[in-house]
Structures are given as structure tokens and as C-alpha cells.
Design a protein around this nucleic acid. Structure first.
Length: 490
RNA sequence: GCAGGCGUGAUCUAGUCUGGUUAGGAUUAAGGCCUUCCAAGCCUUCUGCCCGGGUUCGAAUCCCGGCGCCUGCACCA
């Protein structure tokens, strides 16, 4: 729960995240990660990989940010990712051409290009829906950033609007390299680019953003995921179905209209948000998109949504998309390369794709929003492994050798984890500083340390302190950070 | 992109209407003194009027242009 202004202020002041190119006034839709934000981002990526690649035959790959024109032509982005806009000469408002036409004619106009739309509009004498003014010539607007490849600029390309295309193009090569086994998971993490007309809401809608995506290639006729499904079928998730109102707590068995492989991965995604990101259950839901809302190639589409005060409500953080064989078939047709593989029984199929897609920046913002607490103590509850630092070390006072001793403790600790050392201000001040950036554990070297080599260990959430021998410190911390061990228990 | 609001040290903000001492405060930060566990105190110190032009003896303040942010509309495969 966090007020947007307050959270943005902390983010800037302490070094998490802020508008890019700030010294020149900034540019909407671009954000920088500071030293703390960068650490969270690295941690988030590592943990995401550990969680989702924990299956046989799931792997990371990396592919370029720039894609040639023909890739995105084949994927449908060149055509589908663009809109025809018409601008009113009188009031200056812009509208989507197809929407203006559809409102008048009642027929879909999405298929038209700008010339067809122009003649159709002229024919029907269509004017501005806002003020009745004369409309200017329709113009193309494509959400993709175009780039020229090579010295002559003759080769056209785009900055990728999603990371997935690089993965689809590598399906067949990896299928061979990984010895022809399905299911096969290929994940990637990287930047994607969309030239949004009006990016708003900070890091939520960016022109350059990071995606973490896992594409699972599988045989839809197989029972590959049935066993996994069995292990989660009694899980109860907060679900908002497209045809119903309100969130319902539903078991997987109740949603028997969905295939088992899909339901299994719904649980996986939910577990990531609930258990790893530690989003409270009442702020988390799986929302099904109706056929009108979802892209035509998605057969089933649920979004994971989180209720964020700073962004005014439920916001999409990830999506689970059953894309069928659309992507591989499109690339097969356009490239002429075979994407089909033979499966048990000698049959040849084009594998189907289940896509798990995460907006990384939004995920990180959600951590901050959900975790931010104010009151008698300002602190941020970030899952311990994702926090910028796992531990901070202080001398209780700066004399009698405590300073030097604390420095030694720190030097030793930082070899094992992200640690921080601070001597400035009072001990309370130093706790407060770490509270504000979500450091879960503070270690204080005091006079007893000089006698018996024990330190106090303080946990952020409770502010409780326990005494730990230096010889056990690293091991204790590891257990607490991973939550394998409850703080304060022997 | 349209309409309205806004832009002052790192952060939050007073001052702008009605031009005029050294641009004020709070928080934060750094150094020091002090300090035996949760933003203590004292001393010292750093950083500012979004950018560009104009009016004027003089501009944070008025005018023009630009950039950005916020809210609403539109947009968000």
C-alpha cells in the first residue's frame, strides 16, 4: 500500500528508480534504475530463472533486440501492431480510424489500410465524432520503433516489441540441440520496445521495458503435464472468470473447462507471486480475458493482476497465453523452414505454445507498492532474497575498537551476500536507513562482541533482536533469508 | 494528441496573483563532538528557481516558445 508521490519520492531519494535523461528534462516512457533498483532487478531475474526453469528441459536463451522486417511481418506485428489514426482539423483530437468507421457503419474496419479507409470515409462523409469538424488524411501509426540496418539504410528492421519472437525462431535449432524432446521450455529475459502514444503511470507503461518470458513447446495430444497437474489439483486460487462477476476462490478441479497443462501453469504463476514475490492473497487475482479483449491467436488468456494503490487498482503483471500453433505456423509459412516435429507414433505435428510472460518493471514496482509501510516507522517489506542488501553491519559506537571489529565482520560477510556497512549517525538512524530500503537484517557489533564474539541480529519486520555467535552468523543469515528458518528460533 | 493543473537544493514545500534586501522552512546527506540498540542533542558544511528567448533599471515572479509531469478524454496488438 503506497501513495504514488511518496513512493516516487523514496525511489528517487534513495536510489531505486527515476525518469531517464532527467537532466535534459526527461523523455516519457523511459526510466533508469539506480544502484538499489539495479540490485532488485538482478535479484528478481535470478530468482525468476530459478523458479521457472526448475523443470526438466527448460532453458534460457538470449536473442537480439533488433529484428529484421520480415520476422515481424510474419509474426503479424507489422500489420496488427499498427493503427490508422485520423486527426480532426478543427479540434485536433486523434481517433483510431477503424473505430470511427465502425461506430458509423457497424462493420469491422480493422482490415483496411489507410488508403481504403480514406476513400471509405470520404464516401460516407464521415466527420469528427467529437466536434463534427473535418478530418485530415488518415495516417499510419505503428507501435514499433523502426531502425535502419546497415550503411545504406535499405534493410529495415524494428526494435522488438516482445522478446518471444526470438524464441520462436530458435525453436527448431534448440529442439535438435536438446535432442528432440517435448515438452521443451525456452525462456528469455530482455528488453522490448513499444512506441506508446501516451505512456503514463511511471514504470507501469514504458516505451522501453524488460520482459521475462517462458515459451513452452509441447504436444497438445500428450499427457505430459497430467502428473504435475495431479500434484496441484486441490490448490485454491482467486480467479475472475470472463463470464462471471467478482473474484471466486476456485479449486483447479472446478475449472475443468481448461486443459490440465494450462491449469498446472496457472498454479505455478500464482505460486511465484504469492510465495516468491510475497504478494498478499487479497491483492492477487487471476483474471480471464474475454475473446474480445484477448489477441486473436490466444486461445486461453489469464492475466495475473495485483491491486496496487499507487496505480489506482488492479494492474496486469503477467500473462498466461495458450497460443496454439499460431507462432510456429506463421514462421513456418513465411520462412519456408519446417517447424513440425515427429512425436510418438510417428506423427508429425507443429508443437503448441504456452507462454508465460512477465513485465519485469511492473513486477518490481509491485514489490515496492505492496511492501511500502509508513507510520511510526517507515520501512519496506521486500522479500528477503530480492532486497538490494540482505544485511547491514554497524558498530554500536565508533570507539574502543568496535568500528574496526564491525568492519572485519562486514568484510567477511560481503563475500557471501550483498552486505552494507554504515558508521554514520546514531544506531537508531542506521536502522532507519536500512528499514527504508528493505534490508532484512542488521548486525550490530557491541561491547559483548569484544568479549565473546557474539553480535545482535535484528530483523526488519519485527525489529526483534537475537544474539548470534559470529561463527554461526553466515549460516543463520542464509537460513533466515531463505525463510528456511524462522527468526528467533534456535 | 486535446483540455485543465503544475515545474523552486537530494526530497517535500513557502514565495509567483501585486516584479525589488542575502530565495525561507522542514527532512535528508557529509564531517566533527557526543553516544552501550531503534530517525536523540550540539557545531560546521554541500546542493536550488525545468530549458531558451523577450519586456524591464531589475524576473523564481510578467509575456512568448520548448520540454516534462499530474488528472480527465483518447490510446494501451
Amino acid at each position: 500500500m503506497a501513495d504514488k508521490d511518496e513512493l516516487e519520492s523514496v525511489c528517487k531519494r534513495r536510489g531505486f528508480v527515476w525518469p531517464s535523461s532527467e537532466i535534459y528534462g526527461g523523455e516519457a516512457g523511459f526510466y533508469d534504475y539506480g544502484h538499489l533498483g539495479a540490485r532488485i532487478r538482478d535479484n528478481w531475474e535470478h530468482i525468476w530463472k530459478d523458479f521457472f526453469l526448475d523443470m526438466d528441459n527448460y532453458h534460457m536463451i538470449y536473442t537480439p533486440n533488433i529484428l529484421p522486417y520480415r520476422v515481424l511481418k510474419a509474426s503479424g506485428h507489422v500489420d496488427q501492431f499498427s493503427d490508422v489514426l485520423v486527426r480532426c482539423k478543427k479540434c485536433g483530437n486523434s481517433h483510431r480510424g477503424d473505430h470511427v468507421l465502425e461506430d458509423i457503419t457497424g462493420e469491422s474496419a480493422e482490415w483496411m489500410d489507410k488508403d481504403e479507409m480514406a476513400s471509405c470515409m470520404a464516401e460516407k462523409g464521415i466527420r469528427c465524432p467529437d466536434c463534427g469538424g473535418e478530418l485530415d488524411q488518415p495516417m499510419d501509426f505503428n507501435m514499433m520503433f523502426g531502425v535502419d540496418i546497415g550503411p545504406t539504410g535499405e534493410r529495415k528492421g524494428f526494435l522488438r516489441p516482445e522478446t518471444a519472437q526470438g524464441t520462436y525462431m530458435n525453436f527448431h535449432r534448440e529442439f535438435i540441440a536438446l535432442r528432440r524432446k517435448l515438452p521443451m521450455g525456452l525462456a528469455t529475459i530482455g528488453s522490448a520496445f513499444r512506441n506508446e502514444i501516451s505512456p503514463r503511470q511511471g514504470v507501469y507503461r514504458l516505451r522501453e521495458f524488460r520482459q521475462a518470458e517462458l515459451q513452452i513447446f509441447f504436444n497438445p495430444q500428450s499427457d505430459d503435464f497430467d502428473e504435475h497437474y495431479e500434484s496441484v489439483k486441490d490448490r485454491i486460487l482467486p480467479v475472475l472468470r470472463a463470464n462471471s462477476e467478482g473474484i471466486r476462490e476456485m479449486t483447479m478441479e472446478e475449472m475443468d473447462d481448461l486443459p490440465k497443462f494450462y491449469r498446472y501453469h496457472m498454479v505455478r504463476m500464482y505460486q511465484f507471486f504469492a510465495d516468491v514475490m510475497e504478494i498478499p492473497r487479497d491483492k492477487l487475482r487471476l483474471r480471464e480475458l474475454s475473446p474480445e479483449e484477448r489477441a486473436f491467436y490466444n486461445r486461453i488468456h489469464f492475466d495475473v493482476e495485483v491491486d496496487m494503490e499507487s496505480l489506482g487498482g488492479w494492474k496486469e503483471l503477467a500473462g498466461l497465453h495458450y497460443r496454439g500453433d499460431y507462432d510456429l505456423t506463421q514462421h513456418q509459412k513465411a520462412s519456408g523452414q519446417k517447424m513440425s516435429v515427429s512425436v510418438e507414433g510417428g506423427e508429425r505435428i507443429v508443437p503448441h505454445v504456452l507462454e508465460l510472460s512477465f513485465g519485469e518493471d511492473r513486477n518490481i514496482w509491485a514489490l515496492m507498492d505492496v511492501g511500502y509501510r509508513t507510520g511510526e516507522r517507515d520501512w519496506i517489506s521486500i522479500p528477503y532474497p530480492m532486497a538490494p542488501y540482505q544485511a547491514a553491519v554497524f558498530p554500536l559506537v565508533r570507539k574502543d575498537g568496535l568500528l574496526e571489529k564491525s568492519r572485519k565482520v562486514y568484510e567477511d560477510l560481503k563475500r557471501d551476500m550483498n552486505a552494507f556497512w554504515d558508521k554514520s549517525g546514531s544506531i537508531g538512524k542506521r536502522y532507519a536507513r536500512q528499514d527504508e530500503i528493505g534490508t532484512p537484517f542488521c548486525i550490530t557489533v557491541d561491547y559483548d562482541t569484544m568479549e565473546d564474539d557474539t553480535v545482535t541480529l535484528r530483523e526488519i519486520s519485527s525489529t526483534e533482536q537475537i544474539r548470534v555467535p559470529l561463527s554461526d552468523l553466515k549460516q543463520e543469515l542464509r537460513g533466515y533469508v531463505k525463510r528456511e528458518k524462522r527468526f528467533g528460533t534456535a
